[in-house]
Computed example of a mutant assay.
Amino acid sequence: MNTRRGFLKSAGLMLAGSSLYPLLSRAEGLGSAFVAKPIGIQLFTVFEPMNQDPKGTLKQIAAIGYKEIESAFSSRGGYYGFKPKEFKAIVEDLGMKWRSHHALGAPFKPRPGMKMPLGKDGKPMTFPPSLNLKENYQQLADEAAEAGLNYLVCASTPVATMEEIKSSIEVFQKAAEASKKAGVQFAYHNHATEFDPVEGGKTPYEVILSQTSPDLVKMELDLAWATKAGKDPVAIFKEHPGRFPIWHIKDIKSDLKTITEVGNGVVDFKKAFSAAKIAGLKYFFVEQDLAPSMDNVKISFDHLSKILA
């Protein structure tokens, strides 16, 4: 089963025209119109290539046509081995914008039964130490501001019990307040487990939405994980209008286990984008866990461009 914590093999790619932006305004079948948005990518999609050659990988991403970047942790430390302003300059020199950064909500600890991705040596990989919101929220907020980011996002946090949920909400509160003072919006990214009921029948997602400020804590809905959990993204948007300014554009096959290229699975992207105005969408980032090569990154871009055209 593919997981978000998968790793990619680097590969070359053919230059793709940068004119393939999704023009969403008045697009047939997309319902409510909003201003045209360029396609973004979550760099966890290219975790291994970014560790091996961040500048070269970013050049390939720009050549495909991606214009927005959301970063994640790196085994190089910092922001792929760079300071915030340095990484921002590299991204912008390639004609892209760095919009958002993912950080863990707490020190990484594998969930029970979780299988770690295998490295090139065939052994389970280990994550390098990295900043997390529980211990380093102020530093992360300050660095996001230094980079001029729009969003600082909690990528994952413990939510298996009500105690863990309450603890995570406390972390969100501190991180969100620090982010606001720094001029950055805080947000939370979901997996499928947030929709599993805990004590009292409530789901972690319901509790987080109800017990955090809609202004301080926005949500980054991952469309594939919501679909895997049997949830309708549009229904979620309508229940909490304006709270979903950023999305993960991820697809999943009919087995609801295998993450695949955008357009090659069962996620109804046109339906989701029809509710973009209700959701308050501003930016969206393609993500494919454990993608085999950079070719898959291009396939997702091409398919999403057609979906939105």
Rank of each mutant, 00 (worst) to 15 (best):
N2G: 06
T3H: 10
R5H: 13
K9E: 14
M14D: 09
L23S: 14
S25Y: 11
S25L: 15
R26P: 01
E28A: 15
S32E: 15
P38M: 03
P38W: 03
L43W: 04
L43Y: 00
T45K: 00
T45M: 10
V46D: 00
V46C: 02
D53S: 03
L58T: 03
K67W: 02
E68H: 07
Y79V: 13
Y80I: 00
K85Q: 14
K85G: 06
F87G: 03
A89R: 11
E92I: 06
K97P: 02
K97V: 06
W98R: 00
S100F: 00
S100Q: 11
S100Y: 02
H101R: 01
A103H: 04
L104C: 02
P110G: 04
P112S: 06
P112G: 07
G113I: 13
M116Q: 06
G119E: 05
D121F: 12
S130W: 01
L131E: 01
K134A: 14
N136V: 02
Y137N: 05
Q139V: 12
D142L: 11
E143F: 01
E146K: 12
G148V: 05
L149S: 00
L149I: 04
N150S: 09
S156V: 08
S168R: 01
E170V: 04
F172Y: 09
Q173K: 14
A175S: 10
A175Y: 05
A178K: 05
K180G: 05
K181T: 13
V184K: 05
Q185W: 06
Q185N: 03
F186Q: 08
H189P: 12
H189L: 12
H191C: 10
P197I: 06
G200M: 09
K202L: 12
E206Y: 00
E206R: 13
L209A: 15
D222C: 00
A224E: 06
K238Y: 14
H240W: 10
F244M: 12
P245A: 15
P245S: 07
I246Q: 07
I249L: 05
I249D: 10
K257Y: 15
I259Q: 09
T260L: 14
T260I: 12
A275Y: 07
I278D: 11
D289H: 04
L290C: 15
S293N: 11
V297S: 01
S300V: 11
D302V: 14
H303A: 15
S305V: 14
A309P: 13
